[in-house]
Amino acid sequence: MLEVANLSHAYGDAPPVLSSIDLEVRPGELVSIVGPSGCGKSTLLRCIAGLQAPTAGQVRLDGKPVDRVPDNLAVVFQDYSRSLFPWMSVRDNVALPLRRRRKNRAQRQENAMKALESVGLPDAAAKYPWQLSGGMQQRVAIARALAYGPEFMIMDEPFGSVDAQTREDLEDLLLRVRGNSGMTILLVTHDIDESVYVGDRVVVLSKGPARVRADLWVGLPTARDQITTRELPEFVHLRAEVGRLVRGREAADEPKS
């Protein structure tokens, strides 16, 4: 589905942020990318989404090179308060991307309501985003991406700005949504637990410039639960391994720089 080949990026004359990244995501997979904060995860996502042209290398989605934002791709940003439009009601926010799908007004509103129901917010349709809590706003952002009906969804630290309890709820929502839709998802996070809990695969990035340090298969059962899954020895083991990879690199690197 997605192939990233030898991708590098540098902002102007600054030292490179990404250095020859290779990555492949197969259809239906949920791949989490984890790495220390400030390692260039967001830049990688922006290159993949076609929001930014990399200085070298290529991104291909369904075999076609990505040079602008592809039609079948949606992005959920971390900063929901800015990525939802405050002058539109929740329903209009969710219905907005459907204009591109050439649907009439009634269809757009209907699809938007369906998407809001699937994230558990049918009652918020007439409200404005800023009247909702952070967690609810991010649900709206997810609903907007769902309504768009993409085959591939990119999530940039989607749960980074909400409290721990809400975060768990949103993680489960994500797994449920993904089970229903069969979308391919690429999720960036700095939370090691989260990367293992939601992912089929965990890709660990190193810092400055970002390289793929490891690509681990998460062998956990598809049905996951916040309590029992996190108790499984495989989960604990994998979490420790990812943690070591993320941190070990930092510890080894710091004296040098």
Binding site: A49, L51, V69, L73, F77, R82, F85, L96, R100
Partner: peptide
């Protein structure tokens, strides 16, 4: 206008006149 708002519009294919009237102008209103 917030860069993120413009990027969100871009991701969901809101460009040209639609972007001007639905995103840029309301944000600058």
């Amino acid at each position: 206008v917030e860069k993120l708002q413009l990027e969100t519009a871009e991701v969901f294919g809101i460009t040209g006149a639609a972007r001007l009237f639905r995103i840029t102008l309301p944000a600058a209103a």
